[in-house]
C-alpha cells in the first residue's frame, strides 16, 4: 500500500528536562488518523509541540505538506489543541471566537458558534478559567474544527472528555477525514488507546523519546499474535513473548507471527490482538529494559 506523507521528520533531537527526544525518521501518512501512543513522559507532547510550531528549539528537519516553505501557509493549515489550557484565562468563549478570527484567516465564526452549541457549550460569556477541563477541551476543539485546515494535531484530546463526547470526537475526526477525501490528516496522542481504537488507522508507539513501533493497525494486527498457554510451558514460552503475564490459569503474551511455529508442541490458543493489547505489551517491554 503506497501512501503519501503529510509530515516527514528527519533526525529530530531535543533535550528537555532530563529527557531526550530522538527520532531518526518518522512520517505521518496523509488522509488517515494516526495515534501517537505512549506513557506519560514518553515524549508525545514534546513532539506535538514541535510539530505545532510552539517550540522551536530542536535539531532536525520537518517537512510539511510536500515541502511547503511558507510558515504562514503551514500554520494556517494546521489546527492544534493542547492537553492543557492554552487560552488567556480571562477570555470568555466569545473571546476565543474573536481571537481565532484575528489569528486565522480561514476561521468561520458561524461554524464555531454552531459547534459550540452542538457540543453543549452554552453561555458564551463563561470564562475559560471557570470551565471544567472537559468544557475547555470542547472549546479548543470547536476552535480548530471551525477552521479550514489540512491537518489536525491533537494532544490527548480524549483525556478530559466523558465517554459520550469521546465517541463524538471520533465521529468528528471521521467526518474531517471524509471531507478531505484523502487530503486531510489527523495526528492525535493518547495514553489510553482503547477509547480511540476504532478511529485509529496508523499507530506510532513511543517510549522514552524514541519510536519503538509503528505501522498501520491492520498490519500490526497481522505482525503480532496473542498467545495464551499453560503455566507448565512458561519457561519455553516466556522468551518468545512480549508483555508476558501469568495467572493461576495460565500465561498470556504477544508474539511475532513469524515466531509462532516455535510454539510447536505446546498447548496454546491464539487470537488476533487489539491495538490496545499490542501497545501495552510493547510499552511493557521497554519499561522492563529500563530496569
Amino acid at each position: 500500500m503506497t501512501t503519501e506523507a503529510i509530515i516527514t521528520m528527519t533526525d529530530i533531537q531535543k533535550k528537555f528536562k532530563g529527557f531526550q527526544l530522538d527520532i531518526p525518521f518518522l512520517q505521518i501518512p496523509k488522509g488517515f488518523a494516526t495515534a501517537l501512543i505512549g506513557e506519560n513522559g514518553a515524549g508525545k507532547s514534546t513532539l506535538l509541540n514541535i510539530l505545532a510550531g510552539i517550540r522551536l528549539d530542536y535539531k532536525g528537519n520537518i517537512s510539511f505538506f510536500d515541502g511547503e516553505k511558507d510558515e504562514y501557509k503551514i500554520r494556517e493549515n494546521i489546527g492544534y489543541t493542547s492537553s492543557t489550557n492554552y487560552f488567556l484565562p480571562h477570555w470568555t468563549i466569545k473571546a476565543v471566537g474573536e481571537a481565532s478570527e484575528l489569528l486565522f484567516d480561514q476561521f468561520h465564526m458561524e461554524r464555531f458558534r454552531k459547534l459550540c452549541t452542538d457540543l453543549g457549550l452554552d453561555g458564551e460569556s463563561k470564562k475559560i478559567s471557570n470551565l471544567s477541563d472537559g468544557m475547555r477541551m470542547k472549546t479548543e476543539l470547536a476552535a480548530v474544527f471551525a477552521r479550514d485546515t489540512r491537518a489536525l494535531l491533537l494532544d490527548e484530546p480524549a483525556s478530559p472528555l466523558d465517554p459520550l463526547m469521546r465517541d463524538r470526537l471520533c465521529t468528528m475526526i471521521r467526518e474531517y477525514l471524509d471531507e478531505g477525501n484523502g487530503e486531510k490528516s489527523v495526528l492525535f496522542s493518547t495514553h489510553n488507546i482503547a477509547d480511540m481504537e476504532n478511529v485509529t488507522d496508523y499507530a506510532i508507539i513511543m517510549e522514552q523519546g524514541k519510536v519503538v513501533e509503528e505501522g498501520f493497525v491492520e498490519d500490526l494486527k497481522e505482525k503480532y499474535v496473542l498467545v495464551k498457554g499453560e503455566n507448565a510451558d512458561e519457561a519455553a514460552a516466556k522468551p518468545l513473548l512480549i508483555g508476558f503475564t501469568k495467572s493461576n490459569y495460565g500465561y498470556e503474551g504477544l508474539c511475532l507471527s513469524e515466531n509462532l511455529d516455535k510454539f510447536a508442541g505446546m498447548d496454546i490458543a491464539t487470537e488476533a490482538p487489539t491495538l490496545s493489547q499490542i501497545s501495552v505489551a510493547i510499552m511493557k517491554q521497554y519499561t522492563q529494559l529500563r530496569g
Binding site: 488517515f32 465521529t171 477525514l177 471524509d178 478511529v199 488507522d201 491492520e218
Partner: peptide, 22 residues
C-alpha cells in the same frame, strides 16, 4: 462508497474499510 465515507457511516477506522476493499 468512498473508504472514508464508509468508515464514517460504519463508525470504524479508515484503514479497516480500506483493507476490506482491498
Amino acid at each position: 462508497p468512498s473508504i472514508r465515507g464508509l468508515a464514517k457511516e460504519l463508525r470504524i477506522s479508515v484503514i479497516t474499510t480500506m483493507k476490506a476493499y482491498e
